[in-house]
Simulated assay, not measured.
Amino acid sequence: MFITIRELYNDTCHFVSKEIKTIFFISVITTFISILINMLIKPDMHIISIIENNRFINSYSVFDFINNMTEYEKKELLKYSIFKIIEFLTSKTFLLGSIITLITYLSNRKKQKITSSIMFLAKILPSLFILNCITNIIIQIGFMFFILPGIFLSILLALSPIIFSFQKNTLIESIRLSIAISWKYINIIGTGVLLWMCVKFILTKILLNIHLMNKNFISFILNINMNIFFSILIIYLFRFYMLFSRTEK
């Protein structure tokens, strides 16, 4: 069986159109989780203002930016960075786990109960969090050198959470398989990941340049939209892996 982008596109659109309310609900819940973490762990507003104003923009590099900071600012920046990483990984893990659980539940609705799906979600979340930590570290290392290696690694590692949830492999084995499969089908996986990156960039540029509404409200709307489109990417990748698994049998 030959897998095509058109087939995956049609399957993804069909699934999203049927489950858009559930996807929207999960996206909103994920956004509220991010907001809750923000409320529980208050960052130093002075550091946020430094990052958002021209001191960061006018720096030639990240290292130049850090070297111009005081010792106190460096410590606070480290705390803020750790906090943002935890927030990002927590919300991404919950979104990934929830969408994967939704797909598996709908695929096995006759055999699987809702309580079993909730238990499945609770079981995979800790491992998914660790997997996200590993893959994001690898991807960020790629982005530290040049943009292209970061994008390339994002494509190669995109399937790792799907494989881990679908086949119950170890974390390292899931990463290894993701690299092997994504390299073989880089045109299909790359199309989905690159489209997601473009949508993310366009949404950020458009919404963050709207000055007529409250900044927090715009951030809230942006996060929900990001979560919805990321959910669509997960569905696209999951559907691809299901078709790939059938062809390999």
Rank of each mutant, 00 (worst) to 15 (best):
A158L: 02
Y60Q: 11
S219T: 10
M197G: 07
L128K: 01
S160E: 01
S182A: 04
I57L: 11
I172W: 13
V199F: 06
I186K: 12
N214T: 05
K18F: 10
Q167N: 14
F120R: 12
Q112E: 13
I155A: 00
I163S: 00
S27R: 11
G150D: 03
I224D: 01
I141D: 08
F201K: 11
V28L: 13
G142D: 00
H46G: 12
T191I: 14
I162G: 00
I134Y: 02
F94G: 02
I179R: 11
L96P: 07
L212R: 07
K205V: 12
H14Q: 14
A180N: 13
F230Y: 13
I48K: 14
N132Y: 03
F32G: 01
L171P: 11
S98H: 01
Y80M: 09
S17H: 11
G150K: 05
M1S: 10
I151C: 01
N169S: 15
F145D: 00
K249I: 12
T115L: 10
F65D: 04
I99Y: 02
I155G: 03
I5R: 10
I5T: 10
I130T: 08
I48P: 09
S117V: 04
I221E: 00
M242F: 13
I103H: 04
I47D: 06
H14S: 13
I23E: 05
N68C: 09
K168I: 06
R109D: 00
I234D: 01
I103N: 07
I172C: 03
S178V: 11
L159K: 02
I138Q: 03
Y80Q: 04
I139R: 05
F88Q: 07
L128W: 00
I234W: 05
K205E: 11
L203C: 06
I20Q: 04
T247R: 14
K92R: 14
L95P: 08
V62R: 09
L157S: 02
S231P: 09
S219A: 13
T104G: 05
F56T: 00
Q112H: 11
T204W: 08
L243V: 06
S91T: 14
F120C: 02
S116F: 09
N214K: 08
L243Y: 12
S107N: 13
S245C: 07
K215Q: 13
E71A: 15
K75I: 14
I181R: 03
S116Y: 07
W196Q: 09
L106Y: 13
T22P: 08
F229I: 02
T30R: 06
